[in-house]
Design a protein around this nucleic acid. Structure first.
Lengths: 194, 194, 194, 194
DNA sequence: AATGAATGAGGGTTCATTCAT
DNA sequence: GATGAATGAACCCTCATTCAT
């Protein structure tokens, strides 16, 4: 990649990063192209040169985000720590984008167009589910997961925890509860067997 | 309340109902005053006569929504069924608005202004927490809740489940998992003690 | 029609008139909604309140224009003057909009959308052609039209003359040639039979 | 002309050809510099290197077009066929650009600036009119043109026919009428003398 | 109190043109 | 001389809000 290419790629990254940050802070619809342009330090038209229109930009931000999330997930799954540690990391590692998508993102895209849903579905089938399967097999072997439970149900719980905790308004308040929350995840409200 | 008053009150209700429905379906920002007016069968200006501006309208919709939710919650708590049934009802009774607010609502209001947060906080302190406390005491007595767990942690789980399941895109897919999900809530991923 | 209705109708007319004048002078694409608004003495948004979008406005201007033209044509056909006089009037009466549409109008609409074409076609079948038929029968009886000629060919000539002469840049220059032009129409370049 | 010069000249031609084709198909205003650049296989800036700005480009396209038209006209006039054949060729030979300019071209340039008008006027005085004079003298000698008619009037007819028939929307529909149309041109609506 | 009509401000997008390499 | 990248200005359109009746 020559200098031109590299600078072009860099600028694209800048715009994507500016977008993602603003979207996270203010939601998608509230953020205008003008704002993104300002934050990325380019003119509005430059954004159009790279992304054609706002929806295409959102789409690429979305892909960028999903890919980063999956990559992150992969790393944790293949890391060398016990099962319960992995779960904790998956659930609580904020900013290290999630296996599940931020709600407004998701809902926005689901309602407006369906292409994005396909991408998510595909990534899901090809990557997320296999990782989870591997993970749960491990969990069962280590005795953390009841073999009678379906993978779906556990995945649901993990997604939910991860997604919910990611919420700006939630994260702040539950940090002191981290231990208890993981405990409930493993042992339920009834508590540990002795 | 005389005829005038009553008709006035009725119209206000109509507007609130129209608003809440549209907000749920399309999100707050996508819904224009014109659309609300049309759905409520009044002119735009009438909305302004009752609510001053869009933000005030949202605010009142919000109050309306929270009050309804709390009322609902109260009923379940005081109903005559075992603890685990109550929990199931709280978590899975869709449409019977929640103890927790729809995310976009919340985020929107949190970001824009802080007044609403105070109201929620107040309702929380005065109503929601006491109900939960009563509920958990019951749960502990019936053996469903480990006495060592803090109320906060359990409330966190209930809120999360309720809120997450309320999501349009989620609800459809997890209905068959209902039983398993409640099981995990009570017994954790490790499963029942025998 | 009450005062409200009348004023509304009046304003709509104002906008249509402003549009048609500007379109005639500068072409359709060069004219912005802002300019029309200014000329009609209303705000841009008012135009949108009446016409939804620019294309719909153009469409209505178009209908307005075609209808006026046909009406005009009808009057001439049913008037009480000899055939050759009628032809002269049809061809040379400028501003009294034509049986045929201004080119840019036509081309623009033909290219962009096809609905308008249908309307023209319809008016053509239902009104213009019958009037022409009547007119030519008269012309043949009065000896101005060779019975061997098809109506289509004569209509072509009339349309052409009318349309061409309507052109801003042409009209000015051919006024002194009026007589000769009508002569050529009736007698050809070869000239009168004696 | 050396290699450099020649390649330069070639590129200019490419741009002019690309422009003229696009202008004919979509009208002047609808065609962007970007589109021309793409069709000509050069960068936008290259166009600016050759033509300074869009208006200058249009101007040169215009000259190019007029010159080609006159050249074409000249060929027909000096060809070795009878008068009526020449007329037919002038009028119906589509694509072989005309003695008269395409309307949008003309109107656009007339309205925007006046320089182009001068060029046309000049070509007109120096070339077109002399050719026509020669042509009509021939026509009169061969008995096709009434000697009492002014050259202006006949020129008007020819221009009009040529220009009108060039129109995309017209050309398609009048092909079957070719014979009749030429007949009317020579003999008028009253028909041939016997 | 209620409405139809009107508007200023702002958003997404396009385009002729210039900058930097 | 040629290009990819960048831009200011303008355009169509929407929306919360106000005016006039």
């Amino acid at each position: 990649m020559d200098g031109f290419q590299r600078r072009r790629e860099q600028k694209k990254q800048d715009i994507l990063e500016a977008s993602i940050n603003l979207f996270m802070d203010y939601g998608i619809q509230k953020v205008s192209i003008a704002e993104i342009a300002k934050k990325a330090g380019v003119s509005q038209v430059t954004i159009y040169n790279y992304f054609e229109n706002k929806h295409k930009l959102i789409h690429e931000v979305f892909i960028y985000y999903v890919d980063k999330a999956v990559e992150n997930f992969e790393q944790v799954v293949y890391s060398d720590v016990p099962f319960n540690e992995k779960i904790k990391q998956i659930i609580f590692n904020k900013k290290e984008v999630a296996t599940q998508i931020n709600e407004e993102f998701y809902q926005y895209l689901m309602k407006e167009y369906s292409t994005e849903g396909n991408y998510i579905e595909q990534v899901y089938q090809e990557k997320t589910i296999p990782y989870f399967t591997k993970l749960f097999k491990e969990g069962k072997k280590q005795g953390y997961v009841n073999p009678n439970l379906s993978n779906e149900a556990i995945m649901f719980y993990i997604h939910m925890l991860k997604d919910y905790i990611q919420r700006e308004d939630v994260y702040q308040n539950i940090l002191p509860l981290t231990e208890e929350i993981t405990d409930i995840f493993f042992y339920g409200t009834m508590g540990k067997k002795e």
